[in-house]
Amino acid sequence: MVLEFKDEGIYCPSGDFYIDPWRPVERALITHGHADHARWGHRYYLATEAAGPVMRHRLGDIALDGIAFGEKRQIGDAIVTFHPAGHVPGSAQIRVEHRGEVWVVSGDYKTVADRLSEPFEPVRCHAFITECTFGLPVFDWEDDAILSAQLNTWWQTCRDNGQHAAIGAYSLGKAQRVMTMVDPSIGPILTHGAVENTNEVLRAQGVPLPASVRVTRDTDVKATPGALIIAPPSALAGSWLRKFGSVSTGIASGWMRLRGVRRRRAAERGFVISDHADWRGLNDAIRETGAERVFATHGYTATFKDWLTEQGYDAAVVETEYEGDALDAADTDADAPTEAETVT
């Protein structure tokens, strides 16, 4: 086996390293900066150059080495390369080759290109370790043009009604995706500190984003009528929104396809916008790898495994500690005290 599944995470014995481990290890290769994949406490980290700044921002002073997409690196007896996953800026699939056998760990991925992340690149392999967060056929995403129109219509309507439009989107990836999808001429974009911190990191590395204004204790709400407010979903539920007065709330997540999830989150509007592959995307990606063996790590794994088996794959479910779309998971930045944001 090129890769093994251990208590600490996905392990490569020939290179003595882990990929996205969930317990502290000596050497960790990281697919992307989300908290369930890039965790604290490893001795050495390796990630793409584009993912590095956000990881440093979130994890502090770590021993992090950068690698370019497509760059070959020999670790022990294994050869590794990183390939775009289309999930968030800098996100990668990790290809590991040992004695001619190739395994690929997908991390989180999205097959349809957006205006933010490096577009997904299929990688041929013998075994594919894939997420399947949205591994049911009801998860069928609309085209970005339609989703953009939905967002803009909602924002414009809020503005016409003298309301703010507040959208819940996690701070790395989704928030910036929403920013690239809306029409900035409708009004100003206000951001929660967690979102703006990430915006600053991404802008500094050259990711083009429209202008946004950080919400602080001194923000004059009256000066920004009809603004679009972007905050992590957890912040929408708390007292943070109160000062804006009349607000219409929405959430951007693939989970908005499920009526019950939107109701429980008490959002008025659900926008089915995801940074993960939908059902078709998962199936297309797996087919394009040419892999015979497929391991499903997180999401609707049981049904997805049965489906893949019926399609002729040698499929299995692997227990991991990945969480998929971080709607209810801790958004590292969002947990930072909001008071501190007024200082920065």
């Binding site: 009801v138 609707y300 049904t303």
Partner: peptide, 16 residues
């Protein structure tokens, strides 16, 4: 029981 039952989801997929 689509969406709740694995058996139902597989049936949906076969029909689709």
């Amino acid at each position: 029981c689509a969406g709740r039952s694995s058996a139902a989801d597989m049936a949906i997929l076969r029909m689709a």
